[in-house]
């Protein structure tokens, strides 16, 4: 502490600054704290909660949400949204089963459905870059992708009995479930791309202020198409994981999954308006949603109430993400003339 610099004003402002920092911290990391508190409460009230079987089970349920959530984080970084991911899961589920039944090798099937996901995502992105709002384009895709799934499958679920799929859905490596490993790899790669590469930076710049990104010469059209293509590919990967876990290909797979994914991403602190995105937050958001559901289930709460609670959480998350966050950020810089030095 340098006494020379401590003016009366800055001493008086110090506790106020600390309070401000605490408020900003709470809004920013509120979900991490909420997750910790919820897990603490559940482990105190239910003997089944804090068992490795239960925890792994919840984490495995969260895996598809995390996998798609990584892509959705990039989409939201560009200030976009993709409502079609749940339906893409259904379409991929149907295609996977159909192509396996047709006798195609399982690895080829996986590559093909991921390619389908990438191409449909790129199609979404291409239409969006023509100027149609992302909400409208992907809402249309939401109904049509699942519709195609129903047409192809004639509404029936087809069993999947391939051993590679059994490994993907229910297998493990050194005791860790395969879906968890796949999700972890996606998270690590996603974090790296978002935070350490030009592409991630450009996605954030595009969502933060598109006109600025444009005059700085960023290829906005390509960036936007790419984030939807990535999300499509990841939704297809999640579709493979879900079909493998359920051992069937069904046009009903992934119902309402888009809402859970969006809730997870928003809960995690990624801005709905673009420019700010966090992969770690998305993971926490996905875990929080699934642990809340799991805790309520363990306490025997009516599953329909669980749906209501999920909806309430989504609204709270958006509230936190928009109004509260903006207030906290504004509060944090309420005093721009703080005599701060260039940090070395």
């Amino acid at each position: 502490m340098t006494h020379a610099k401590t003016t009366p004003t800055s001493r008086a402002a110090a506790p106020f600054l600390d309070m401000r920092k605490a408020a900003v911290f709470l809004v920013r990391y509120g979900m991490f704290i909420a997750l910790a508190l919820w897990m603490l409460a559940m482990s105190l009230t239910s003997e089944h909660f804090l068992t490795s079987t239960n925890l792994l089970n919840v984490a495995r349920q969260a895996a598809p949400i995390v996998i798609i959530g990584v892509g959705m984080t990039f989409v939201m970084a560009t200030a976009g949204i993709d409502l079609s991911v749940g339906s893409l899961v259904a379409l991929v589920s149907v295609l996977t089963a159909a192509w396996l039944v047709a006798g195609l090798p399982p690895l080829l099937v996986i590559a093909m459905v991921i390619l389908v996901g990438v191409m449909l995502g790129a199609l979404n992105g291409a239409i969006i870059t023509l100027g149609v709002p992302a909400f409208v384009v992907t809402l249309a895709a939401l109904t049509s992708f699942r519709g195609v799934g129903f047409v192809i499958s004639e509404g029936r679920a087809v069993p999947i009995s391939d051993p590679i799929f059994a490994f993907i859905g229910r297998g493990d490596v050194l005791g860790i479930n395969t879906p968890l490993i796949i999700a972890a790899v996606v998270v690590v790669v996603g974090w790296f791309v978002l935070n350490r590469t030009r592409f991630g930076l450009y996605a954030l710049a595009t969502g933060g202020r598109e006109e600025a990104a444009r005059v700085m010469g960023l290829a906005i059209t390509k960036i936007k198409i790419a984030v939807y293509a990535i999300t499509g590919g990841l939704a297809a990967l999640a579709g493979v994981v879900i079909s493998a876990r359920l051992s069937n290909g069904s046009p009903n797979a992934g119902m309402m999954l888009e809402l859970e994914v969006i809730a997870a991403v928003v809960l995690g602190g990624t801005s709905l308006f673009g420019g700010r995105a966090t992969i770690a937050g998305t993971v926490v958001g996905a875990l929080l949603i699934n642990f809340v559901r799991n805790g309520l289930n363990l306490h025997g709460v009516n599953p329909y109430w669980v749906q209501v609670v999920t909806g309430v959480i989504l609204v709270l998350a958006v509230l936190m993400n928009t109004v509260l966050n903006r207030r906290a950020e504004a509060w944090a810089r309420a005093n721009p003339e703080d005599d701060r030095e260039v940090r070395k």
Binding site: R198, L201, L204, A205, G208, R209, E211, A212, A213, V215, M216, G217, L218, S271, G275, R276
Partner: peptide, 21 residues
């Protein structure tokens, strides 16, 4: 630019090097 063409969420350095990192 008249409005500076900065991306508010990016850092000072990220804005300065945007497009030529």
């Amino acid at each position: 630019y008249q409005d500076f063409a900065l991306v508010p969420e990016l850092t000072v350095t990220q804005n300065i090097f945007l497009g030529r990192e």
